[in-house]
Every structure is written in structure tokens, then in C-alpha cells.
Computed example of a mutant assay.
Amino acid sequence: MPQSLIFEDHYKRLGLEIFSEENLENFNGNRFISEIKVFYIPSGYELTVDFNHYQTKTSSLFFLTNQHLNIEKGQEESMLLHYNRDFYCIQIHDKEVACDGLLFHNVFEIPFVELDDGEADLIKVLFQNIRNELEWEDSSAEEMIRTYVKQIIIRATRKWKKQNLDNATLKIPGSELDIFRDFSRHLEIHFREKHNVSEYAELLHIAPKTLTHKFKNLNLASPNQFIINRILLEAKRLLFYTDKTVKEIAYDLGYEDPAYFNRLFTHKTGSTPVNFKKTTSREKSTILKPFYLLKQGC
């Protein structure tokens, strides 16, 4: 069977890639960095998402946008669904199931859902249905594929909520969920030019103090800290994956004063941007921490 299947129609694009131990090297290199990704991974895989390393102890789904993803180890067949927003826009198509900001760029930085055996079988059937549509190339394939993508997202959203919002750490009432979802979405879109809580509060049509209190009441870090964390993550990506200077990175992230950006980075990370770049280029394994063991029931 083909290992790569693509649907393209004008600006709309969706692809399905099949990986296993024999062809994992074909995955790496950030070929899919600009696309939305839904990655089904069986147990026994080791992978890195940005600067976090994971080992799957059960089948899992990873939901990624512009994160850097690298597969280090895996045997059984994994499946990567990648598409652009012209093919499927989370915000538009899934508004009624409140997916935007939960699976793909949530403020909690939890990009995965763990699956039990029954759930894994259902997800594999949906991936296989997409594969069949891509191979058949019927005129109605686009809408059928979009339906299957939506089913995957709905099932995964329900599971993500159960695993992450119904526990003591991240318990969020349903009435408050929209605020966090919308904050996540706005942060992902605007973090380069909007650095203040007041700017996000305005987008959410609430007072800055109200937004801050909502986070505090749920024992979460402040909105300001989430904003800084997102900026620092992007700075680390640019330092690690590109040859841009610190000054160029500061400008890319909306700081007209590179010295201020340098001080912020140093204060929050304990390392200057220059030292971070030197250290990570010498000891890449050091930054692939913390190490997350994904296992059923944890």
C-alpha cells in the first residue's frame, strides 16, 4: 500500500502518511511544520514535541500545529493526518463542539490524548476510512474525509476533557471553558504583537482583573505568565531551530528593544539567549526534558 496519500483541490490540502520502524526517517525534518497535524501513535514510540520528550505506553493521539515534532523510536504502524486550514478550520467547523484551543493549542500545553484499546480501534477505523476515500478518489471524497476528521476531533475532545478537566488539577466548570479556549486561541494568534493581559481581555470582552481572577480561582498560573511562556517557547524554538540572531528574534517576537527581550529571557529561564543557543547546540539531549511516560490511567 502507498505510504503517502494526498488530496488537493485549489487551496485545500490534506495528506495521510503511514510510518513504522522501516521508514521513520522519512518523518523527521519538519516537512509538516506549517500544517495542522493529528498523529495516531501506538505504544512503544519515543518522540519529542518542542522541548518535551514522550514515551507512549498506550495508543495515543497527538494534536499539533506549529510545534516541532521528532520521532526517535517506533515499531508498529503510526498514522499522520496533516491538513491546512483551507481544508478544515477548527474554529469554523467545530465551533459547536468547542474544540478550538483544547486539542491543538491549549494553555495547559497538553497536546495528547491517551486511548484505551476500544477507543484506539475506533480511531484506527476512522483513519482507515480516510485512507479509503483518498485511494478511491471519488467526487464526494472531500466531504466524507471532513466528516471523519470531525469525528476524530469530537471523540478526542471528549476524551481530553475527561482526562484533563475532570481532575483536581485542571477542574474547569463548563461555563468557564469558553474563556480558556478563546484565550488559548487568541494567544496563539497574537503572542508576537500582544504582550499584555489587557489586550487579551479586550479581545474576550471582559475586564483584565476578571480574566486574572478566573485563572487564580482555578489555581492556574496567571494569564500574564501564560503569555510570557508562549513567547519564551517561540524564542527557544527560534534559537534552537534557526540561525537567527538574538536581535532578529527579539524583533520577530514584537520587542523593539532587544536588550529588554534579553533581560526577560534571562530572568525567566536562568540563561541568556546566547548561552541557551550554545548549550542546546552542544547538548541537544539535555533539553529534551521533562520526560513524559504516557500510560493508561495516569
Rank of each mutant, 00 (worst) to 15 (best):
S4D: 08
L5W: 04
I6H: 10
L14M: 14
S20A: 07
N23T: 05
G29H: 03
R31S: 07
F39E: 00
Y40R: 04
P42L: 05
Y45I: 03
E46S: 05
V49M: 02
F51V: 05
N52V: 12
N52S: 14
T56A: 05
S60H: 02
N66S: 10
I71F: 10
E72C: 00
K73R: 14
E77M: 13
E77D: 15
E77W: 05
M79Y: 07
D86Q: 10
D94W: 01
A98R: 12
C99E: 04
D100F: 07
G101Y: 01
L102W: 08
V107R: 00
V107E: 04
E114Q: 13
E114D: 09
L115F: 02
E119S: 07
D121L: 12
Q128A: 15
I130V: 03
I130S: 02
E133Y: 07
W136M: 15
S139D: 10
S139A: 13
A141T: 10
E142Q: 13
A156Q: 05
K161D: 14
Q163F: 06
N167Y: 04
N167F: 04
T169S: 08
T169W: 09
T169G: 01
G174K: 11
S175C: 09
L177M: 12
I179G: 02
F183V: 01
S184R: 01
I189W: 14
H190D: 15
F191Q: 03
R192Q: 10
K194L: 10
K194M: 11
N196A: 10
E202D: 13
P208H: 01
L211R: 02
K214T: 08
K216E: 13
N217K: 15
N219V: 05
L220K: 01
A221F: 09
P223A: 08
N224K: 09
R230A: 05
E234C: 06
A235M: 04
K236P: 03
K236M: 10
R237G: 08
A250S: 04
G254F: 06
G254C: 07
P258I: 02
A259E: 15
R263N: 08
L264D: 02
T269G: 02
S271D: 09
V274F: 09
K277M: 03
K278T: 05
K278I: 04
S281E: 07
E283G: 07
S285A: 12
T286W: 09
L293I: 13
